[in-house]
Design a protein around this nucleic acid. Structure first.
Lengths: 211, 211, 211, 211
DNA sequence: TATGAATGAGAATTCATTCAT
DNA sequence: AATGAATGAATTCTCATTCAT
């Protein structure tokens, strides 16, 4: 009698999970070319052969991981956009807080996912992943922009070119992930409020206080 | 008719310059491991053999370029720090402006140098370059921090943890370079003033206005 | 209710039969190196593990199959040689007919066995099978030669070097198996008589007719 | 000053020629899967790296060689077909003689080319080479058939289904190449006339004699 | 100074074989 | 008897580096 289906599935899932975790961490830091299958297998605690049992190639694993990172980021932001009963300003604050929490919590892999996306954007191999369909790549950017425009209408967020504001805010977020990843705790992370101030309308705050 | 010594020297310098330019652009985008000597030679318009005539190895070229990027950045900031007759706020504004000008000027290789540093920090191979001496790596950070502390004393710059402020400002700058490099003109760059507001004391501005 | 011993044995035989059939077809076409255990198991409809339950290795299966093909061919010819009350000419005609029937009957695996032998002769791995004992390999050839020599004595078969005649006749048979296997029904098979004419003494035929 | 273009070209051609020769001999005997790059490089007297300097992969070399074998065979037969002032019977005799000379001359690589084609037909990887265009594969067969039909009109060649006759003659030729390759001089090759008799109209011969 | 053919060490990949259940 | 996850040795392939000219 063979192993039961449940046993096989459990073994399989555990191995795949280990491979993915190892892949994200290594690819995020060293990129596709700089990470060897050997390293991944060692980090995942499995043999090289098993890697190839589940993934046809190093690139296939890489692509799966970057795709997952992209769609996860997109979905998180889209959920936030579609949340009812929350002001745009509050939405931004929530997003910032989530990001910072991820950076402060050492077990969290959010900064790795960000760096993974960054690496693949930099080396242009992101187009191996999305084909010519750039929508996947820029969807987060556009969703964030929608929240920001909404905030400009309600007065929560500074006036001015919404695209530039989005770029600046995202730049800061990306940069913080990068520093966290490269230097660990050497660079202290800023408070949430300072990051939010990149977008939030201070006039309004002051005006509210006056009242 | 043999070439004159001057002609030879000019050829030599041109070749080396081409190698460096090709190296910076390719390493910045694809990292050390992801860039092949072949690509560099092709991009530089020379033969592989000639590459090795000038550089002992791929790594040697890489190290030279990252070192140059680091020291250039460090020196620029140190000069700014030591400038007399300029307020800390003005110093920051000058630095921001220089960075943005580099990003807007397509011929400029400043964003490539930034990305080169980022890549080597991410993949940890920066320590191939500096040995265990981290000072080279963190010097820019410290210099910028000094300017910021100075600004906090004069009131130009927001109060609060100077380290965190430095991190946030640098994050934004890094992020912008990254977006410029990866997406060209897709993301619009923010105005200088928005970047400066990350550091600059708005209370003071308002207060000044009131008067 | 546990299975009876008979049921178990039947399953066992069925599995082994499936493995053999798959092995012959795949090895015949793709050779030892070009056929993977995986393919065989898939074609046989069993798991890899079960394959190894019955055969210690891929090579063991291969050797068993080639050996079987060789001995079967040898025995068929030896039986024919030793048949009483049949003229050598008739023996050849019988052999030719049997071969052509095998080629025309799609279910028949005779051409696969021939190709299997050919593959293993070509790649020299036949000596893995027979050791240094070449007799197994050349036995068919020698038996056929004996029949041919006998035919030359009785006048059934053309005069001339018996070795060369054997070679030519066998070449034609091999070639036909090969074409059947590679191109299915694209190449029409010749009639039995044309093949026999390679050996049969036409003078005699004409002479007989005249009478 | 670099090596001259002539020097480079001579080196290049010599290496490529060595690779091709080694490839034909090894692939012909052991097939694509059974031949290792290592063997080819060793046989060719070059390094593995150089192999890959000239051929993107083992398969690319294989494809080039099979293609060359196919087109060479096709062209030889087409030339023969189009020869003026030669009877169809004489054309067949010429072809047979050329083949036998190739088999008897140890330096000749004709039998290797035949076996190479056979191997790739057997393993079905010939369609990697020709795509779905079967014409390249069957062109030799069709050209030979045209010569045979022509011979049937002139009375040089036996009457009957021309396709079957072509198959039988080609089978014999293929088979002889195969035996030569596998057993060297163990099997004596038949005389040219016996092979021709597979096709040639003996009635005519006898009839001519009588006159 | 300049070339690109040639090398080989190391990385990616395949696949026969083992093993716990 | 039967399964397929897991292993690692052997193979394919890449690419930094050398070298003769």
């Amino acid at each position: 009698m063979p192993k039961t289906k449940e046993q096989f599935d459990a073994m399989k899932m555990a191995s795949i999970e280990n491979i993915r975790d190892a892949g994200v961490k290594l690819f995020a830091k060293k990129g596709l070319a700089g990470t060897s299958i050997n390293e991944i297998a060692k980090e995942a605690g499995i043999s090289i052969g098993l890697m190839y049992h589940y993934y046809k190639s190093k690139e296939e694993l890489y692509i799966e991981l970057v795709k997952f990172a992209l769609t996860t980021a997109n979905e998180l932001l889209k959920q936030l956009l579609e949340t009812k009963d929350m002001s745009p300003g509050k939405k931004i604050e929530t997003f910032t807080k989530n990001m910072l929490d991820g950076l402060n919590n050492d077990g969290d892999s959010a900064p790795y996912y960000f760096a993974l996306i960054d690496q693949s954007l930099l080396s242009n191999n992101i187009y191996k992943i999305t084909g010519t369909d750039e929508s996947l790549v820029f969807e987060s950017y556009h969703t964030l922009q929608l929240i920001i425009r909404e905030g400009q209408r309600t007065g929560d967020i500074k006036n001015g070119d919404a695209r530039s504001l989005t770029t600046l805010y995202l730049s800061a977020i990306h940069g913080l992930c990068f520093f966290k990843l490269t230097t660990g705790d050497y660079f202290s992370l800023p408070e949430s409020s300072w990051i939010n101030e990149i977008l939030i309308n201070k006039q309004q705050i002051l005006w509210k206080r006056k009242k």
